[in-house]
Design a protein around this nucleic acid. Structure first.
Length: 154
DNA sequence: GCCAACGTTGGC
DNA sequence: GCCAACGTTGGC
């Protein structure tokens, strides 16, 4: 059982979009960074992840999701019509992978990036480290619990 | 829109 | 294998 954080730009795909999918489940495709891909490959069914809205007015964690399918090839990578097309990825030798996630629940109040930065005890959280741009990153159990506790009291 | 940080590409 | 050039991310 591990914990993660996954970023999405809400104008592209928001937590609300996920909640409106059948069974609140959708695939998480389009990751084209090796480190982020490797983290996705390390995910197991039942792992939980924060859903983070990036590149928007108030960036922050807006909800949580559960991993419901482990990493499998991302077929958008060999679709020439996909914005995520990568000519070096083929069905025989897939380079990129995706997982399926299911929304658990939206947070009643988003936990903003500024809140996370101001909160004591979150040192080392990759999200708030300078220059961190990964779209998928691990969260320690201690950090996960701290952030969950923030949600309750906010 | 700016720009710092970072990743990738490709010439050599 | 080095590294300059370029592209992308994402907060502000």
């Amino acid at each position: 059982m591990a914990y993660w954080l996954m970023k999405s730009e809400p104008t592209t795909y928001s937590f609300d979009d996920l909640c409106h999918q059948p069974k609140k489940t959708d695939f998480w495709d389009g990751v084209r960074n090796y480190q982020a891909r490797n983290f996705m490959k390390a995910m197991s069914i039942g792992d939980e992840a924060f859903f983070y809205h990036s590149n928007c007015k108030e960036p922050g964690i807006v909800g949580s999701v559960k991993i419901v399918k482990a990493a499998y090839p991302d077929d958008t990578s060999w679709d020439p019509d996909s914005p995520y097309f990568d000519p070096k990825s083929t069905p025989e030798n897939p380079r990129w992978f995706r997982v399926d996630v299911q929304a658990i629940a939206p947070f009643t109040h988003p936990i903003l990036l500024s809140d996370l930065k101001a909160h004591p005890g979150l040192d080392g959280l990759p999200l708030i480290q300078k220059g961190s741009r990964l779209s998928v990153m691990p969260v320690s159990e201690a950090h996960w619990k701290s952030i969950m506790a923030m949600q309750v009291t906010s």
